[in-house]
Design a protein around this nucleic acid. Structure first.
Lengths: 125, 125
DNA sequence: TTCGCTTTCGCAAATCACTGCAATAACGGT
DNA sequence: ACCGTTATTGCAGTGATTTGCGAAAGCGAA
């Protein structure tokens, strides 16, 4: 664990909810002015790999949030307004079990994001 | 419909299964040497918008395949080997209905891809 | 502390997807 | 066939993310 990595973790942890990679960078620069964006990305991928943060794809940008074991959830992202709603993993449990039983495929539940249209962005008619 | 677009469609249609944008480009250049990659992307997005092709994200590259109404399916992509399995949309129907009823959220079923580990890439133990 | 090995960092450049814009090609009306 | 309108193309450039690589930092053993 290096100072740069600690900063990244602190920044993600300080936020309740998700934060974009560019925002992490801007905040990290306040403490480490020369930190490179590549380091931010590498660190975020590392934290994701070890299970400390989860990744949410919003629009076409990567966002991250602390992986709180006591409040695990998935995300529904509206492709029109980029709004995010959280979803209890219970909704996916049965589906996930079927995939595992019938195909031996283990879905990566932590990183499943459901795209679609939120209630406010439904097409008229 | 222009010659370039017809080429793109032909190429995607000729393939049983998915094909990467770069592959489409390489094949399209055989018929239209000056076709630009941007045209490929724009055409693929167009074909997707009108429902003729569907998009599958494999690794972090876009792939496309013909949207066969008689053989609609989703995809399970292994994050280790990038292998792709198809999945009947029946598996998602119930889940999708719950989201719609309880949250008013309409998932974009055609473009849902499930990431995870396939049976061959399960961690040992 | 110093040496030596390993890991990480910063920088630059590559990658993939997308967009703005001027030039060009397609299409309909005459 | 000709002209004007509209849509599409090629090119260049942008944004987000990733990768290669030499320099620097971290860390354990002596």
């Amino acid at each position: 664990m290096t100072p740069q990595r600690l900063s990244v973790l602190d920044i993600v942890a300080a936020r309740t909810g998700h934060i974009g990679a560019d925002e992490v960078w801007n905040l990290a620069k306040e403490q480490h002015p020369y930190v490179d964006l590549a380091t931010i990305y590498r660190t975020l991928q590392l934290l994701k790999r070890v299970g400390v943060v989860t990744e949410v794809i919003i629009g076409n940008k990567l966002h991250f949030e602390l992986a709180d074991q006591h409040n695990r959830h998935n995300h529904m992202v509206c492709s029109t307004c980029d709004g995010v709603q959280t979803l209890s993993p219970d909704y996916l449990a049965e589906f996930s079990q079927r995939l595992e039983q019938e195909f031996g495929f283990t879905p990566d539940l932590d990183n499943i994001t459901i795209g679609g249209l939120c209630s406010s962005c439904q097409p008229p008619g």
